[in-house]
Amino acid sequence: MPGISREEVAHLAKLARLELKDEELDHFAGQLDDIIGAVAAVSAVADDAAVPPTSHPLPLTNVMRPDEVRPSLTPQQALSGAPAQEQQRFKVPQILGEE
Rank of each mutant, 00 (worst) to 15 (best):
S5G: 14
H56P: 00
P71N: 08
L73E: 15
M1F: 07
K21T: 12
L25W: 01
I4L: 05
D47K: 12
D33P: 08
Q77S: 13
Q87N: 09
R65I: 04
D33W: 04
A84F: 12
D22T: 07
Q85N: 06
L79F: 11
Q85M: 06
A44K: 15
A38I: 00
R70G: 05
I4C: 03
A40F: 13
D47L: 07
G97L: 03
K14S: 14
P71I: 04
E23Y: 05
S5D: 14
M64F: 07
K91A: 14
S43I: 12
A16S: 13
E86Q: 13
A78N: 04
N62E: 11
L32S: 00
D22F: 02
V9D: 00
L60Y: 03
A46E: 09
P53F: 12
V92N: 00
E98G: 07
P75Q: 14
L73I: 11
L15T: 14
V45Y: 03
A41F: 05
A50D: 05
Q77D: 15
G30M: 00
P53A: 11
S55N: 13
A44P: 10
L32C: 00
V63Q: 06
Q88L: 02
L73A: 15
A49F: 12
E19I: 02
Q94Y: 10
R6L: 11
I35A: 01
L12W: 02
I36K: 02
P71V: 06
R89Q: 05
R17N: 13
A82N: 06
D48W: 12
D48E: 10
T61R: 14
M64E: 07
R65S: 10
A41T: 05
A44S: 15
A10V: 13
A46F: 07
